[in-house]
């Protein structure tokens, strides 16, 4: 779980949000697999989609950016990818589908999908003045694997 609630309200809500369907699916997956970690993918095929793993399965890059959490499950994106994505808020949704490589929801017939909202100029200023934390800087995420 992410410990610092205040931090969440300031930083996290702004860069990441999610739909009710996502909440439901995350609940379903945590019931089966326990703590999770999300990582935004890039590239081809199942790329540009969020991947969801058991938290201790995937080692998050120490420089990867912490975007927030979905019902206590942290969400990261590669730092170089974030540089191209930082002007948008990610909205994690669920659609009917299959695949997602090793992402845990594959067998459910549902697939996480990243939707996006472009920040307004004011929002973007606030985002820029409030830099995100990297995986090695974020604290209190139990079971998170990263290089210190």
């Amino acid at each position: 779980m992410v410990g610092d609630i205040l931090f969440l309200e300031i930083n996290v809500i702004e860069r990441l949000s999610f739909t009710q369907e996502t909440e439901k699916l995350v609940d379903e997956l945590t019931d089966i697999h326990g703590d999770l970690v999300f990582h935004q993918s890039g590239g081809c095929c199942d790329g540009s989609a969020p991947m969801c793993f058991p938290r201790d399965e995937f080692k998050v890059g120490s420089r990867d950016i912490y975007l927030g959490e979905i019902k206590g499950q942290p969400f990261f994106i590669a730092h170089d990818q974030y540089a191209y994505w930082e002007h948008t808020k990610l909205i994690i949704d669920v659609v009917p589908g299959r695949g997602g490589m090793f992402s845990l929801e594959g067998p459910t017939g549902k697939r996480f999908l990243t939707r996006s909202k472009v920040f307004s100029d004011d929002e973007y200023k606030e985002i820029k003045s409030n830099p995100p934390l990297s995986a090695s800087e974020v604290s209190g995420i139990e079971g998170l694997k990263t290089t210190s």
Binding site: Q40, G42, G43, C45, D46, G47, A78, F102
Partner: peptide, 13 residues
Amino acid sequence: FTGETTTGKLIMQ
């Protein structure tokens, strides 16, 4: 493997 970056990283792990 042919696919995307996150799974590519996981496969390298």
